[in-house]
């Protein structure tokens, strides 16, 4: 299981990435994250909502109310253009870190060989 700090840092890009695949709602977003992470990232379910509401306040996602298949009220979220731009920024940053670490570990491997 990744460190809490890592999970914290990845929460926003992950939610945005799930929403980039299409409009979704709270529970389905959690399932999307679980699916993407293959169960490796354990999120406390309820704390997804503060993240979503913050993204909404920041204009990175839009929300609207609709009905579930059984007629229950449901809040749907969709990524905005600003959200896509933020996701692209996150992606660049994470890829930068990933490449750096890969090179660092490659160098360690070469030194040990």
């Amino acid at each position: 299981m990744p460190a809490r700090e890592l999970i914290a840092a990845s929460s926003v890009p992950l939610v945005l990435a799930v929403l980039a695949r299409g409009e979704s709602y709270g529970y389905a977003i959690l399932q999307g994250v679980a699916e993407l992470s293959e169960g490796r990232l354990a999120w406390g379910e309820g704390m997804l909502y503060p993240v979503l509401h913050r993204l909404e306040r920041d204009g990175l996602v839009d929300a609207s109310w609709g009905r579930s298949e059984v007629g229950r009220e449901r809040k749907y979220y969709r990524i905005t253009a600003a959200g896509r731009a933020a996701l692209a920024r996150h992606r660049d940053e994470w890829l930068g870190v990933h490449r750096t670490l890969e090179r660092a570990w490659g160098a360690i491997g070469a030194a040990h060989a």
Partner: peptide
Amino acid sequence: DRGDGDRLALEGGPTGP
């Protein structure tokens, strides 16, 4: 407030199916 994911992790609980 350093990232809600921090508490997401702290809260625990499975999210998978």
